[in-house]
Design a protein around this nucleic acid. Structure first.
Lengths: 197, 197, 197, 197
DNA sequence: GATGAATGAGAGTTCATTCAT
DNA sequence: GATGAATGAACTCTCATTCAT
């Protein structure tokens, strides 16, 4: 492969990438239905007609946004997995959530709000996709509780992730980032209180 | 006012009412953006063109749906207020939530999901409205904790309502009503554990 | 129904009618695929967006064009049915065909060319519709041959209608109206030659 | 010219050929307007962008499809020309038509249906082209009648070819291959009945 | 010559809102 | 007030054609 080809390939791949990132970004801010293909195209600096070369339908773009969130989640968990103590990993997760306080207060949790909007559909396509991302997060959290030797790790995961979704939603609805701080602190002390008896 | 006028007025009032109820119902199921005026009109059995005599814009209809949720909330809290013990009132609230398990698993919390969708807007109109309904719920819950003599009743309210929003969202995303049961039970025992020291 | 209501109804009906006639007309000249909704709307003097009040899809408009052709066929056969002699009726049919020589030379038989275009589809929707119109013509022709006491009236119908479609197509492809005259004359003498033995 | 160049040329020629054949094939099945360049490219196994090195526009590809039909016609008439008796040649022609009964019932006569679709245009380009192919068939048929010493051979040709187009169209519209058999048989006996008086 | 990618001009369709009676 | 009909802006998606390498 010549150098220029390499550049092109990189660029082409980059374009698809740009579209995914832009889709995730814009959809998080505007919601699926209020986001037009043109919005995403503009954000990715791609001509509208060209979007369809990479994604055949708007739904595919939304799916791409979802998988972008999956990727973000994986980046985070991979990083946290380097910590030896599972409890530290969960601490890190909560801290990551709290660090997004301002975004959450303005637009909510990217995955959660997307799931909410997609769940209003009945086509059984994208809504299931959104569920998968959340299931992946639940699975990782459960694994940490499991490694801590705690009983009913799945129930604990549900509680922790549920609390996150709830606090994001409230922070968003109240437009108040401090909700994230308060609830984040509470979750951290709840985490400490859990004992492997 | 003649008799027939009275009837007409009553009917007219009934029509407005029907539209509010229909709006709340349909919007909960389909979301704001995927709901058309025609959808609501049909559900309320009102001719499309006639809707605009009661609500000048679609946004007003959505606002009406919100206030319908407020009304439902008030009906519930009024009923609960008849219980002498604030802790019983909160128990009743949680039980009411759990009793909606199937609806929550399919469409989420009516107010919460509506808030999520409206919060994507930046017109500072309806999104604030949605916040108010949630604030009202928070206020009532806080009041109960306050009457129980618990410290930081506002924080406790945040935790309880956040847990509700979170479990509704998860039940919905996972399409699993049992999430409501599990988390509902946990909330009840959490409630017992709170001590007025 | 008040007078003004009657007028409105008439007008509304007239609009739908105008659209059907316009669709039949424009589609005959331009073909289905090269005809846009805007073309038909313009021809019917109806705003584009309003077309969808009467016809939910373009295909419905094409179906309407087809039924307009059915209507034309019925008008013709009703008129011919008043003639006492079936042979006269068939003569009248052939003469009607020949009288359309110039239109046929320019755009072909409305129903036949529409059938040709729709038969390229495989959705089993409109193509079947087109077949029905032709079947209706075949049925009527067969009935005349039957009344004449001729054997195998269905085969004769096939021959006559087939000859019509063939001569229309040739007149159109050669852009030569005289084809209609020559073949029309031949069909008339063929008709005379048929004997009820 | 080096060997590899020769190969490339041959290959290139083959590519052009493949595109023509594919164009004729796909257009016959889908019609001009419903066929995309990509459809033809895929059928010919040629990259989309490469099509334009062989055909500058879609219309040129359609013209190529037409000339492919001309070529097919020439292959047929050349073969028939080897028969000494003109009447046998015409018999052979009719038999060739009938042998295509199933294709005709599904997609009609390739040339005829193409002519129908192109005649809806008014650009005076391709529509004339389609007429030429039909004229060529008419000419050959007329020549046979002429050699048979029959009067008005051009009128007879019109009748025979018209009957073919008509029966193809009816077989297609009725989705009934037996139409080809019945009318084919009739044409054969009609052919016998013609007398050189 | 070969090729994937780019481009932009429509096309069909939807829908909130308004109009006329 | 009530109602069917009207309106037009916006959106998704398609495709012939061109570009860059």
């Amino acid at each position: 492969m010549t150098d220029s080809n390499a550049v092109r390939s990189r660029k082409a791949g980059a374009k698809r990438e740009r579209l995914m990132v832009a889709a995730a970004h814009v959809v998080h801010r505007q919601g699926v239905e209020r986001t037009t293909i043109a919005d995403i195209a503009r954000a990715a600096d791609v001509p509208v007609g060209n979007v369809y070369y990479y994604f055949k339908t708007k739904d595919e773009l939304v799916a791409a946004a979802l998988s972008e969130h999956t990727r973000q989640l994986e980046l985070l968990t991979e990083r946290l997995n380097r910590l030896p103590d599972p409890r530290d990993r969960l601490r890190g997760l909560i801290e990551a959530w709290v660090s997004q306080r301002d975004v959450a207060a303005r637009y909510g949790c990217p995955t959660g709000t997307l799931a909410v909007e997609l769940d209003k559909r009945d086509d059984g396509g994208l809504d299931a996709e959104a569920g998968k991302v959340i299931r992946q997060l639940l699975g990782w959290v459960e694994q940490q509780f499991h490694e801590l030797g705690l009983p009913e790790p799945d129930g604990l995961a549900l509680t922790l992730v549920g609390a996150y979704q709830g606090m994001s939603l409230l922070a968003n609805a109240l437009r108040d980032p401090s909700v994230m701080d308060r609830e984040g602190a509470r979750l951290l002390s709840w985490l400490e209180s859990l004992d492997a008896t």
